[in-house]
């Protein structure tokens, strides 16, 4: 259940940014999660609802965008989208020197505040 630690990271970053902007209430928090992380969206919402209580994010909606995985081959430059099981080898030249472009994100994009 490491979603709790991740939810805490979201909450503390969102509150810091909201306070910096002089806000008193957070309405929405937009985050991006790569599909290759071990984060379960349902568990994250559950953790979020548990920890936002008593903070300025008490009523804040957590909007989660799941981001697909893409890799690029270091040998031939081919770029492709993939699931968890087809990212290790280039489908074009069969090379194993591949670089993950997206899929492991865990980031806060923006917040909506008053």
């Amino acid at each position: 259940m490491h979603e709790m630690g991740i939810a805490e990271g979201i909450l503390s970053s969102a509150i810091t940014a909201a306070e910096d902007a002089g806000a008193t209430k957070i309405n929405e928090v937009d985050i991006t999660v790569g599909v290759l992380t071990e984060v379960m969206e349902d568990a994250l919402h559950f953790a979020w609802e548990a920890i936002r209580t008593g903070t300025m994010a008490e009523a804040a909606v957590l909007n989660v965008t799941m981001l697909d995985a893409r890799s690029q081959c270091a040998d031939c430059g081919h770029e492709w989208g993939h699931d968890r099981y087809s990212g290790a080898q280039c489908p074009s030249c069969s090379g194993y020197l591949v670089r993950l472009l997206t899929g492991r994100e865990l980031k806060i994009d923006s917040i909506d505040i008053d």
Binding site: I6, G9, S12, A17, K107, I108, S110, D112
Partner: peptide, 14 residues
């Protein structure tokens, strides 16, 4: 009001 943050969630850990 919408504010862009663009920050890693685990920034403190990282």
């Amino acid at each position: 009001m919408k504010v862009d943050i663009e920050q890693r969630i685990l920034a403190a850990n990282d």
